[in-house]
Amino acid sequence: MAKKLVINKAWCKGCGICVAFCPKKVLGLKNEKVNIVNDGCILCGQCELRCPDYAIYVEEESNE
């Protein structure tokens, strides 16, 4: 089971909380929406815990 970071741009309100508290600084804001800006994500889920809009989360990928 692999994990991946998922962004739901439709729900993102661009507050920047996830960007600020990402320990690896892999997130950025572009046009007031969150974006993954580099491949340093360690899938820690800190962004998911603090996103007020449930717009970013770590998902378990099924291998099927």
Binding site: V6, N8, A10, W11, K13, G14, C15, G16, I17, E48, P52, D53, Y54, A55, Y57, V58, E59
Partner: peptide, 23 residues
């Protein structure tokens, strides 16, 4: 959305009305 949100939130009513960055 994330599994937790899918299970415990009424998705049809999201996104919520709270301001950007509301705790």
């Amino acid at each position: 959305p994330a599994e937790l949100i899918n299970k415990y939130m009424r998705e049809a009513h999201l996104p919520h009305i709270w301001c950007p960055g509301c705790g």
